[in-house]
């Protein structure tokens, strides 16, 4: 990696101040994407502002109708949390299948969504479960947060502080992993929250996470798994690479949505 200035922030304000005073500062959460990128010399930030010591960014709270997860909460913590496993088991299961044990014990929900890798699991979890993304400046619905490949609505220096998930009536996440990287080739979060059915898809689209309207229509209020399986999803604007064609991804959207719906019951 190239040289950079390292600062361990002591509070949110300290972190934001450090970022704004840096030439090209980058927040460091779990570092599971950023550090390998630096090691490959594919990025050259002037400053890294480490959030590890900002204590109030980590933790899970149950607000009755919603669960709020601090941005610096690791995937392993979410996967094992009693609150999450009992109230939104689909989210715990999603977190429990990200990467490998090392990644899950370092990687964080805030880091993941701020990076918005188009094959990451959390974007589908957030959009499917109709989460609210909370930053140091505002709150915005997940659907408005994820804007494009590796692009979010975050402004320069804006810091994700937490994600709030309303407790769904039913939900399940079905992921078809890339055999090599274990990122999602297609991952679908199917959820019913307050009467609304959602199917959010990660891994498949050229522009990142999206809601599959035709799948949602087929699922209907009864989460009809058989109907979802029959939907012929268009391959237009889907990714194609050495691991999967656009047609295969389109097909897997129906299959994974159907399996998620069946698991959600």
């Amino acid at each position: 990696m190239y040289n950079f200035n390292y600062k361990k922030a002591s509070s949110r304000d300290d972190a934001v101040a450090a970022q704004s005073s840096a030439d090209d500062g980058s927040y460091l959460a779990g570092g599971m994407t950023l550090i390998p990128t630096l090691k490959q010399r594919l990025a050259q930030p002037s400053d890294l502002i480490d959030l590890a010591d900002v204590g109030d960014l980590a933790g899970i709270s149950d607000d009755g109708g919603a669960i709020t997860i601090g941005a610096m909460t690791t995937h392993a913590t979410v996967a094992e949390s009693e609150v999450v496993t009992s109230k939104i088991p689909a989210l715990a299961a999603l977190a429990g299948h990200i990467g490998d044990p090392q990644v899950r014990n370092r990687g964080t929900i805030g880091g993941s969504i701020a990076n918005n890798d188009p094959a990451a699991d959390y974007p589908a979890g957030c959009v499917g479960l109709n989460a609210t993304i909370i930053t140091n400046k505002r709150e915005l619905p997940a659907e408005d947060f994820f804007t494009d490949l590796f692009e979010t609505a975050l402004e320069e220096g804006e810091l994700v502080t937490a994600v709030s998930f309303p407790i769904p009536d039913k939900a399940a996440y079905a992921k078809f992993p890339n055999p090599a990287s274990r990122y999602a080739i297609v991952g679908v979060m199917v959820a019913q929250t307050g009467g609304e059915t959602r199917a959010a898809v990660t891994g498949a689209s050229q522009s990142g996470v999206f809601r599959a309207a035709d799948i949602e229509a087929a699922l209907g209020s009864g989460l009809d798994a058989a109907a979802a399986k029959e939907v012929k999803v268009s391959a237009d604007n889907l990714n194609a690479d050495i691991h999967a064609s656009a047609e295969y991804r389109a097909h897997l959207i129906s299959i994974m949505a159907s399996r998620a719906a069946a698991a959600a019951g």
């Binding site: 055999p179 990287s181 050495i242």
Partner: peptide
């Protein structure tokens, strides 16, 4: 699982564990 892939220009597409299984 395993398969090495070069593109037509000779760039190694399976140059890391992200793509080489």
């Amino acid at each position: 699982l395993e398969g090495c892939v070069y593109d037509d220009a000779g760039q190694l597409l399976t140059g890391s564990y992200m793509d080489y299984t």
